[in-house]
Design a protein around this nucleic acid. Structure first.
Length: 649
RNA sequence: GCCAGCGUAGCUCAGCAGGUAGAGCAACUGACUUGUAAUCAGUAGGUCGCAGGUUCGAUUCCUGUCGCUGGCUCCA
């Protein structure tokens, strides 16, 4: 029998022909000895498969090595199997759930064994043995019955569930390495010996299939890289991230504190943190007022009836503190400000000419967040939102939305925030029941948001299922130091609350019409925003925000009166200045000012006093030499006005 | 809320075969009067998160509880 020949188009564009059934590993060998040695997987018509798979048609072929990110991911996946194999050896009876590749590594979820951190080195050691033993990783196709039989016998309840949930058309495969086999669609390295550098990182709980009503498994997280230097670099970055964690910096710099005496998730803003917050609040309130927002004050408590009208009581009461019965009222701590602002709107008649009407507030709210979700200032139970509700005619939505997005861009620029992305959060088309029922509204609004973003020339990702139940939204996402995604700003369309509160305005036609509401937070909550800034600036707030902008350090006690005189003069111009007149050496004072990340350290001694000057040292830049007080004032003023960022040392 | 780990002076940590605790920094006192990232000496500071239990005896072992950390879930 003559075997068919197939055409294989390689990455460089060259075409070779091979007989049907040729393994991709053989093709690699036919190209070069180096490729035969280094290839870890094959990318066939864009799909990554095992090198052991055979040619069955004309294909485009790319042979992947550990220089390719996709090749590294294959290695990570095999490494997950090796970890499972090691666990099976050390802790017999452990059950296996899933072990996918994630950014920088992989995890595997286990059950029926309680892991402790001491287990990790043992598992690593066994993994090294398995890698050294260099088992070929062999793919086997099983029938559904065979697979069910195999995993039922092993009492692997998770694998059995997975198999039962696979569609009929799915080919069921297992991968075998030595005595260990795991249900897996692959692909994998040719053998375990090809795994390079890895490290088991942590243990965590995780629900089976992400469902909190189901069994909780133990997840072991690991990282894996092709090069030792990549692993080391990754660990170094993690350490650096720990150094810029806002909880650590917040404590060191006296920004905020948390204590169980005050209550979980209830932060106290210390004097330095309060100064930063106040500058931000003034900034945003001034900016908003200049853009036609009207700031109001409303109470932190409300009659529970208000939240029954809004619908929050029905949808959100589990996240609210329970009502307090006083006199004839049931009062709750407000979890959001919207209902109060609806009432502000309703306090008088409105004409179509009044719109858009922008009601804003630095609104303090309390939410009963789950204790396990609390984290420093990033996730708290008491927070103040830079909130606003904009009441609009339907024809004004796109224009006003665009205005809000421009405001966000402006603010981010002022704070030097560059690393963020836009997420358009739409409703889940698979589960429309979760949302306010109004198909036409949803389609129109979602299209409009996209259009506005496109017109602004801004990139975005669409996230189906992330919408609020009452309307689609734009979220501005940033990453925390530890790499978690979180929402900093949000702009939400709401077609629901105006109905609940029966809001109306009188249109051009003299008839009553229902307005649309945009909810928006620009700097978000003060808590999360300052946490983010701490991490972004590594604690070195730019001069316009710094709690202490300049510290005057005297060379000796004799110069304290001069230092105080200069400090007073600067304070009268609104600068935040301290004097360090202690009888310490100047080197000591400077070190302390630098550790405290104070933008300017002003050294004064005999020379400065007699010349009416200052020796200026700047954070991250060192000694700038001597300058007159006037020259320094000009520099400071200019820097504050320009909101310039500090240079990191 | 759930799983796991942790909880020692203001801060960072040592104390890992049960015999009532120690360092550095900070604070305070004194000396030094200082020129661009730590002057020297001394003093004070802890019911070892809290509550039970085991033990002649517990910071150390056990149980519970509170808090923190990692992750999951949640996040109008």
């Amino acid at each position: 029998m003559v075997l068919a020949e197939y055409q294989v188009t390689l990455k460089d564009g060259s075409v070779r022909s091979y007989p049907a059934g040729t393994r991709f590993s053989d093709i690699a060998a036919s190209i070069s000895a180096g490729l035969a040695r280094e290839a870890v997987a094959a990318k066939v018509n864009g799909k990554v498969v095992d090198l052991s798979r055979e040619l069955d048609g004309n294909v485009e072929l790319e042979l992947l090595t550990l220089k390719d990110p996709e090749g590294v991911d294959v290695m990570r996946h095999t490494c997950a199997h090796v970890m499972a194999q090691a666990v099976a050896r050390i802790f017999p009876g452990t059950k296996f759930a899933i072990g996918p590749v994630i950014e920088n590594g992989f995890y595997y979820d286990f059950a029926d064994h309680v892991f402790t951190p001491e287990d990790l080195p043992l598992i690593e050691e066994e993994m090294r043995k398995i890698i050294k033993e260099d088992y070929p990783v062999i793919r086997e196709v099983l029938s559904r019955e065979e697979a069910l039989k195999m995993f039922s016998e092993r009492e692997d309840r998770f694998k059995v569930e997975i198999i039962n949930d696979l569609p009929e058309s799915e080919t069921i495969t297992i991968y075998r390495q030595g005595e260990f086999a795991d249900l897996c669609r692959g692909p994998h390295l040719p053998s375990t010996g090809r795994i390079k550098y890895f490290k088991l990182m942590s243990i965590a709980g995780a629900y089976w299939r992400g469902d909190s009503s189901r069994e909780q498994l133990t997840r072991v997280y690991a990282v894996a890289f092709a090069k030792k230097s990549d692993l080391e670099e990754h660990l170094r970055l993690l350490e650096e991230a720990r150094q810029r964690d806002h909880r650590k910096l917040g404590k060191e710099l006296g920004i905020f504190m948390l204590s169980k005496e005050v209550g979980q998730g209830l932060p106290l803003w210390l004097p330095k943190g309060a100064k930063v917050r106040r500058v931000i609040e003034r900034y945003i309130v001034d900016l908003e007022e200049s853009l036609g927002y009207h700031h109001v004050y409303t109470p932190h408590l409300a009659n529970v009836e208000l939240y029954k009208i809004s619908g929050h009581w029905e949808h959100y009461h589990e996240d609210m503190y329970p009502p307090m019965q006083m006199d004839n009222e049931e009062l709750v701590l407000r979890p959001m400000n919207c209902p109060h602002h609806m009432m502000v709107f309703r306090s008088e008649m409105h004409s179509y000419r009044d719109m858009p009407l922008r009601i804003a507030e630095l609104g303090t709210m309390h939410r009963y967040e789950m204790s396990g979700a609390l984290a420093g200032l990033q996730r708290v139970r008491s927070m103040t939102l830079n909130d606003a509700h904009i009441f609009l005619r339907p024809d004004q939505i796109q224009e006003e939305f665009t205005r809000v997005v421009k405001l966000i861009e402006r603010v981010y620029k002022d704070f030097g925030i560059k690393d963020y992305y836009h997420r358009l959060s739409f409703r889940d088309p698979e589960d429309k029941q979760k949302y306010v029922q109004n198909d036409e509204m949803w389609e129109k609004a979602q299209t409009m948001l996209k259009q506005a973003m496109d017109d602004l020339g801004l990139d975005y990702v669409v996230a189906p299922g992330e919408a609020a139940f009452y309307g689609p939204k734009l979220d501005v996402q940033v990453k925390t130091a530890l790499g978690k995604d979180e929402t900093l700003s949000t702009v939400q369309l709401d077609f629901h609350l105006p109905n609940r509160f029966d809001l109306e305005y009188i249109g051009e036609d003299g008839k009553a019409h229902r307005p649309v509401v945009i909810h928006r937070g620009i700097v978000g909550t003060m808590e999360r925003f300052v946490a983010f800034l701490l991490e972004q600036y590594k604690g070195a707030f730019p001069t316009w925000l710094a709690p202490v902008q300049a510290r005057i350090a005297t060379v000796a006690g004799d110069y304290v009166p001069y230092a105080e005189e200069v400090a007073d003069r600067l304070r009268q111009q609104g600068f935040r200045v301290e004097v360090d007149g202690r009888s310490e050496k100047i080197g000591y004072k400077i070190r302390e000012a630098q550790v405290n990340k104070i933008p300017y350290t002003l050294v004064v001694g005999e020379k400065e006093q007699s010349a009416g000057a200052l020796s200026v040292r700047k954070y991250g830049q060192g000694d700038l030499g001597s300058m007159s007080i006037e020259a320094f004032e000009r520099q400071l003023r200019k820097e504050v006005d320009s909101k310039a960022l500090l240079v990191q040392p």
